[in-house]
Design a protein around this nucleic acid. Sequence first.
DNA 1: AGTTATGGTCTCGTTTCGTTACCAAGGATC
DNA 2: GATCCTTGGTAACGAAACGAGACCATAACT
Lengths: 145, 145
Amino acid sequence: MTREHVSNLPEVPEEIIQHFDQWQAEGVDASNCPVRDVLDRIGDKWSVLILMMLAREPKRFSALNKAVGDISKRMLTQTLRALQRDGLVERTVYPTTPPRVDYRLTDLGHSALRPLAGLIVWADKRHDDIRAARDAFDRQETVAA
Amino acid sequence: MTREHVSNLPEVPEEIIQHFDQWQAEGVDASNCPVRDVLDRIGDKWSVLILMMLAREPKRFSALNKAVGDISKRMLTQTLRALQRDGLVERTVYPTTPPRVDYRLTDLGHSALRPLAGLIVWADKRHDDIRAARDAFDRQETVAA
DNA sequence: AGTTATGGTCTCGTTTCGTTACCAAGGATC
DNA sequence: GATCCTTGGTAACGAAACGAGACCATAACT
């Protein structure tokens, strides 16, 4: 039943699903799971956005701040530091006044872009479906209440 | 300069990067950006994990709770509700006692699995690099202090 | 002297998160 | 027939993370 359901959809490599199964059997917690470890960083509110913004070329702190728009300086600093710590982003300070600081993707950071692009394309393509689902869900709730 | 840097890396489709550029020019905030809208949900602490766990077959609430391990019932409920609202997961209640509730991926949920798998493979492959970068960063900090 | 610009940090109030206790319903146990 | 067990949650509360805004150092420019 589940198999039929799955089989007519774009396939997820069986190998990956086996990974999932395996983790599941072991009980996935943060300590033993690389995906958890990485996703907890990458998967926060701002990281992906910032990696995207740096895709083509390095950017200054203020440029990032403006590009993202509704991020606060506090969170921008924090996110950039985390990305730097994880080796995805490189920080360069030019000791001028006023100071100038560039952020650029490292090779590792660049390598993240491809999988992220996959996700982004999906998000773009399915956005309408998701919004429709949301509306339907919220209507139901309203009716039930 | 940046171009050379980029060109010898696994390529990200130029089309995608243009997307990034465009968003950037417009100033990406939550309201006008589908990616933001979607990523804010998908990209929370638990959603991806749960989608992974449901990859092969539907699971009961308690099974998910056990599989993830360090998620609380509160957050599990909350995350599942959000996924259901976004149409990625379907909730089925069997009115027995004690109650039995199944969660399964919808077609939409399944379609998310492929891009997520890409990310997961990346995380798995690059985990060591990231940890190494972290260690190096933390050592530097310690020395500087 | 006063203004402007950059790349932050500090503080404080609000949200969100995680932990624990609790609940309802019926079947099994004694 | 009173008690206990199980499932799938919810309620309440303290802890941690987040967001808005004020503030700062430096020097060039007016």
